[in-house]
Amino acid sequence: MSEKPSVLPAKWDDLTVRITSAVAMTVVGAIGVILGGHWFQMMVVFVTAVMVWELWMMIRPESATSGMLLAALLASVMSGQLHDETLFAIVLFLVVPSIGAFYLKKERLTFFCFALGIQLAGWGLVHFRADYGFTWILWLILVVIATDVCGYFAGKTFGGPKFWPSISPKKTWSGTSAGWLGAGVVGFVFIMFTNAGWSIVWISMVLSFASQMGDIAESALKRRMRVKDSSTLIPGHGGLFDRFDALLGAALFMLLVAYVFNVPGVAF
């Protein structure tokens, strides 16, 4: 008895698995974002710790136990750090990246920079949720989602010239620009029910670009480490680092903006 041929073209083969995994992550993430407080903190700390473990495993896969211990240390450090407003809390950002880099035999600077970026982004997300509330963390997340979804479908549908073929061969200019447009639409929608002015549209598009750079940075890391995915934790998506790399880029951008312009709440 012959197998029933797939209804979807080959280039869409992964769509069902991706959507199923995305829905599951969206439900869990939405619950955490809506509840806020300690629930959101615990979710972010967990995801941040797992991403640091994935980073370690890409560089030193033969030492899984060390990676798990490092992730546990990060979870402990970050949990205390989120409730400490002193200079000591800032110094704590260096603990896990420094210890991990010390015990690695190669790619020490790579680990230090990425681990520090992951931790900073996680810290920023928690404070954005606490200081600015549900609406604006929702805006940030929706911009990242719109960028990813619009970019995925436009890239698959239209193809065309590659955006940065030496680092991310699958990304096209059509998908990249569609991501910007999708983010702009999100900004436009938020004008209707918030006090944000028209500037939120172009800010959303800049944030979209920052999220794409987070994706590009992780793609460059994987290419350097010669791995396809950061891990196999999420069917159709790879690891948490693969799924949240764009959100990391967006969060780091917003943290930079808050620091440079001394935005109340998250500026040091």
Rank of each mutant, 00 (worst) to 15 (best):
A220V: 03
F40H: 09
F163G: 06
V33N: 03
D229Q: 11
S21F: 09
F153P: 11
I203W: 14
G179C: 05
E85I: 10
V189A: 14
L94V: 11
I203F: 15
D242K: 04
W139N: 07
A130P: 00
F253I: 01
L109N: 07
I59G: 06
H237T: 11
D13E: 08
E54M: 06
K156M: 15
G179R: 03
Y132N: 05
M254G: 00
S76W: 12
G36D: 07
E54R: 10
T65N: 08
V263L: 13
R243S: 02
G179E: 05
Q41K: 13
L247P: 01
G197S: 14
Y152V: 11
R108K: 15
K228G: 05
G182F: 08
K106R: 14
Q41F: 10
R18Q: 08
F163Q: 02
I118G: 01
L55W: 03
R226Y: 08
T176N: 05
L181Q: 02
S174H: 09
M1S: 06
V144P: 03
L104A: 07
M42L: 15
A210C: 14
K11Y: 15
S219N: 10
S219T: 08
V126G: 03
F40K: 06
P169H: 12
S66W: 01
G179I: 01
V266E: 01
L233N: 03
S211T: 10
I118L: 15
F158Q: 12
T194I: 07
S98F: 12
L92K: 11
P165D: 12
P9L: 08
Y103N: 13
M213R: 00
N195I: 04
R224C: 02
I200P: 05
R223E: 01
V52M: 07
T16L: 13
L181T: 07
L8Q: 11
V95R: 03
T110D: 08
L255I: 04
F46V: 14
H38W: 14
K228I: 09
G32Q: 01
V33L: 11
G239V: 09
Y259W: 13
K162R: 15
S2Q: 06
L87G: 00
L116S: 04
L221K: 02
W173K: 06
V77D: 04
I203R: 09
D215A: 13
I59F: 03
V95E: 02
T135A: 15
R60N: 14
T26F: 14
T176L: 05
I234Q: 03
F190A: 04
F46S: 13
A115G: 10
I145N: 00
M51S: 02
G67W: 03
V44I: 15
V47M: 15
F134S: 13
K171A: 09
R224V: 00
R18H: 05
P235Y: 04
